[in-house]
Computed example of a mutant assay.
Amino acid sequence: MDKVMSNKGIIALYVLPSLLLILGIVYIPIVLTGYYGLHEWNGIGALKFIGLDNYKELVSDKAFWSSAGHSLLLAVFSAISLIVYLIVAMVLAARLKGVNFYRKIYLIPMLLSSVAIAQLWLKIYHPTNGILNSVLESLGVANPPAWLAEPSLVLFALFIPILWQYAGFYILIYYAALKNIPTSLEEAAKIDGANAFQIAFRIKLPLVMEVVKVTVVLAVVGSLKYFDLIYVMTDGGPNGSSEVMASYMYHTAFRTYDFGYGSAIGFFLLIICLVATWLIRKATATKDTIQYS
Rank of each mutant, 00 (worst) to 15 (best):
V217T: 06
G193I: 11
I199N: 04
G236P: 05
V232Y: 06
P238T: 15
R202D: 15
V212S: 07
R202G: 15
V211A: 08
K204H: 11
A188E: 14
V221P: 03
K190T: 15
G236S: 11
K225Y: 06
L207N: 12
V208F: 03
K225D: 06
V208L: 09
V216M: 00
V208A: 04
N195E: 11
V221Q: 02
D192S: 07
G222V: 08
V212M: 05
D228Y: 05
L205V: 12
F197A: 12
L218C: 02
V214T: 11
T234Y: 07
G193M: 09
G236A: 08
G237L: 02
L224A: 13
A188D: 12
V217N: 04
F227Y: 13
E210G: 10
D228E: 14
T215P: 01
V214W: 01
A194K: 05
V208P: 03
P238D: 13
N239K: 06
I203Q: 07
D228M: 10
V217Y: 05
N195P: 08
I199D: 07
Q198S: 12
V211N: 05
G237R: 01
V221W: 02
F197Q: 07
G193L: 10
I199R: 05
T215M: 10
I230N: 07
V220Y: 00
A188I: 15
D192V: 03
N195W: 04
V212Y: 04
T215F: 01
Y231N: 15
G236M: 05
L224D: 10
G236T: 08
D228W: 03
G240D: 07
I203P: 02
E210D: 08
F197W: 11
A219H: 00
Q198Y: 04
G193W: 04
E210Q: 10
F201M: 08
D192K: 00
S223T: 13
P206E: 13
L224S: 09
V217K: 00
I230W: 02
